[in-house]
């Protein structure tokens, strides 16, 4: 029990109740933070790090019902277990607490054995939920994890305007054959860490990783004001990071890493595809095909970043893309104007 001690916020306007509850909870091996009313409780909750809330109902300024509603409305706080401890009159008030999302109701004065049982079970549930969240964000990116948390899971797509970015490492197969598999995975991990960082810092999310190849979305699942500009900024930061990485590699007598990036902007269909049991967040459409073709074309024209006309049109800063020419890509009826960015 003591090993699983949680951090618990106790909200009660009555000093005697606050003292008694906090001592009872501390005696059970948990740490306690106190708040005298709902408004102060919400301020404390904003700092984060709580495992459970022990909440009184009758309070001045902001009562327990209002706190429950505010927690339910906040995606960051939703799921935080709340145990209502009150001597509120009327069964309908207790029912209202549960309907507003409270995990449980303990009448005052709180029975210590009951309190211990409820705390242990709620903290265990919270631990499982945290583990699930961590797992979800490990395999699904934090944006998709958040989308799932807010919108729930449903197979199906939405039309969105987004920029799609493809990136791969040039000559990676050759590189990986010349070294031990452990070294290859280590190199990939270092590369992914740099690329994820550059992409996330410009509002994008990585939607696919396959070997030395990745696809990132700017504007899905959450819309962005300037997806094209953010994608191009991310691409340039990716290159700057690779430059820095290569300085280290040269010092270790390793060959330079080179990457190619293709960016296309336009309508995509994004959503969860798969089955009820196994699905992933994905993005399809001509924009995605275009980005993939542009990326593979970087090798043919020896450029690092290639973008399409729609991405050019969406640029807000003075990037000055250079027209490379019109290219007839496989699967496209008309030749496409291709631009390079430095």
């Amino acid at each position: 029990m003591a090993s699983a001690g949680g951090r618990i916020l106790i909200v009660d306007d009555n000093k005697v109740n606050r003292l008694l509850l906090s001592r009872s909870v501390e005696m059970l091996g948990h740490s306690v933070v106190l708040a005298e009313n709902g408004r102060i409780a919400m301020q404390r909750l904003a700092d984060g790090g709580f495992d459970l809330l022990l909440l009184d109902i009758e309070m001045p300024e902001m009562d327990g019902f209002e706190v429950l509603a505010a927690i339910e409305a906040d995606p960051e706080l939703r799921g935080l277990p709340v145990i209502v401890t009150s001597s509120v009159e009327g069964l309908d008030n207790i029912v209202r607490c549960i309907e507003l999302g409270a995990e449980d109701y303990l009448p005052k004065p709180v029975n210590r054995v009951l309190l211990q049982a409820r705390l242990t079970s709620c903290l265990e549930k919270k631990r499982l939920r945290d583990e699930q969240r961590a797992l979800l964000s490990r395999f699904a990116t934090s944006e998709v994890a958040r989308d799932l948390r807010d919108q729930g899971f449903a197979i199906g797509g939405r039309r969105l305007r987004a920029s799609v970015l493809f990136c791969d490492i040039r000559g990676f197969t050759k590189l990986s054959e010349a070294q031990a598999p452990e070294a290859t995975i280590e190199l990939l991990n270092a590369w992914y860490a740099l690329m994820f960082d550059a992409i996330a810092s410009h509002g994008g999310m990585v939607s696919l990783m396959i070997g030395d190849w990745l696809m990132a979305l700017f504007g899905a699942p959450h819309p962005l004001d300037t997806p094209a500009q953010q994608a191009v900024d991310a691409a340039r930061e990716m290159l700057a990071m690779i430059d820095g990485f290569n300085v280290e590699r040269r010092a270790a007598a390793e060959p330079d890493l080179r990457i190619g990036i293709g960016i296309a902007t336009g309508e995509v269909v994004a959503g969860y595809a798969g089955t009820q049991n196994r699905a992933c967040y994905t993005c399809i459409g001509m924009t995605v095909n275009r980005a993939a073709r542009l990326e593979s074309h970087t090798k043919a024209v020896d450029r690092e970043i290639l973008i399409d006309a729609e991405t050019c049109a969406g640029l807000t800063s003075t990037v000055a893309p250079a027209l490379v020419g019109a290219v007839a890509f496989k699967g496209f009826s008309e030749p496409l104007d291709v631009f390079s960015v430095r």
């Binding site: 009555n14 005697v16 109740n17 009758e58 309070m59 001045p60 001597s87 009159e89 005052k108 004065p109």
Partner: peptide, 12 residues
Amino acid sequence: RAAHSIKSNAGL
């Protein structure tokens, strides 16, 4: 609210 508070503590 004041009556509620007194009730709760007096009961304790």
